[in-house]
Structures are given as C-alpha cells and as structure tokens.
Amino acid sequence: MELNAGLVCRGLNFRWPGKNADEPPVLEAVEAVFAQGTVSLVTGNTGSGKSTLMHLLAGLLHPTAGEVWADGQPVSRWPSRHRDPWRRQVGIVFQHLALIPDLTVGENLLLPMIPRPITWSRMQEEIRRQLEDAGLSALADAPTNTLSGGQRQRLAIARALVARPRFVLADEPTAFQDDHHAARICAQLCDIAREGAVVVIGSHDPRLRSFDGIDRRFHLASATLTGAAVNQGAP
C-alpha cells in the first residue's frame, strides 16, 4: 500500500473506550486509500461507523490499532500539539453541522480562518467567494439560527471548504437538501477534488450512490470497509 497517496488507512481498528473486549469493534482492520484528486463515497447503514471513520480520518478520534497516514505522514500517531494544527488542512462537515447559532453566517465562516497566517482582507475575500458558491451571499449578516435546515447544511459545507483544505471529510452532506442543491453540493465537492484535494463523503443518501462524479465507492458493514474504484480516469 502506498502511504503517501492522499489519505490512507492501514489496519485501522477502533473500539470505544470502556467497552468489553468481547464486544464487536466499530471498525476492524480497515485498509483504504483515499487518493489525492478523487472523491470517495463511504456508504453504510445507520450506526455502521461512517461518522466514526470520518472522525478517525480527521484525527478527532484515535484508532485503537492501525494508523491513518496523510501525505505520507502517520498523523494518527502524532501527539496532539502536532495533530491539532495539522487539522487546518482538513475541512470537516459534521453530521450535526456544529454551527454557532448566535453568530452570523459570515462569522461562522471566519472561525476556521482565524488562526491561519493570512491577512484579514484575504479572509474576507475567501468568505465572500465561499458564500457565493454556497448561494448564501444574501444571508452573510443573518444569524445562523434564522436559516433553514438546508441553508445551514450548505453553510456547514462552506465552512469546511473556506480555507481550501487538502482533505475534505463530509458526513451526510446532502441530508437536508433537495435534488437540485444535492447535485450542486456534489459538483462543488468534485471541483474541490479536481483542484487536488482528497474528498471523502460518508452518506447513505441514495442520490449520491448514483452520482457520476464519485471516483471510489466503499461500503461499511460489520466493522469492515470494502470498496472499489469507479472512475479510473481520476488524476
């Protein structure tokens, strides 16, 4: 397995702390390569461990065995003071969105930008661009708690993408979207991948399974990830 090819899981195991050893693990011996410039879809039933896999890939959780490699580095083995800043290269869309309700749309987009060494005006430029892509320009100054479910989800995706991450991990990114917006989000994620990012989508949305921009499809069941490449022409 080539370890410097985007985001790689090598023998990944995960078991919740405190659970009995005889209980089945959430993930077991997961081997996967999420290559640079591709969109990968991880499907599976509710509770199958898609979100856990996303959190492991983002370094929010630690694998109980095995490793996650990013760009040839074993990031899951890194101590927290290195893993935390590494996460600046990751854009994560949470299933529960995790927006700050009393902040405006623009301010929610600002959050991931603040600790980065970029100027304030550049931040504003990036936010403006991302709001346009998400179709939320008119709502820049609106408090987040006044948005609809679909708008909030688009905002969560915009927040994940605003800092141009190397790795995009989207957990159920189309759950609250109509067909039009779901297609638009998929296209947006494909565009990001074509620019060189690693995009991993965890979803059980049937619309995504049939989307032709997906390069690799994985299925998660009984703690095991299985999958195959779909679009061989991916860079």
């Binding site: 630690h62 065995a65 899951s76 101590p79 927290s80 003071r81």
Partner: peptide, 14 residues
C-alpha cells in the same frame, strides 16, 4: 503507543 494513557500523556506534554 496509542493507548488511553499515552493519549493522556500527550495532552500532559502539551
């Protein structure tokens, strides 16, 4: 190692 104690130690080190 990536056991819980080592994770705690990493936080301690930070």
């Amino acid at each position: 190692h990536a056991d819980i104690d080592q994770l705690r130690r990493e936080r301690h080190a930070e």
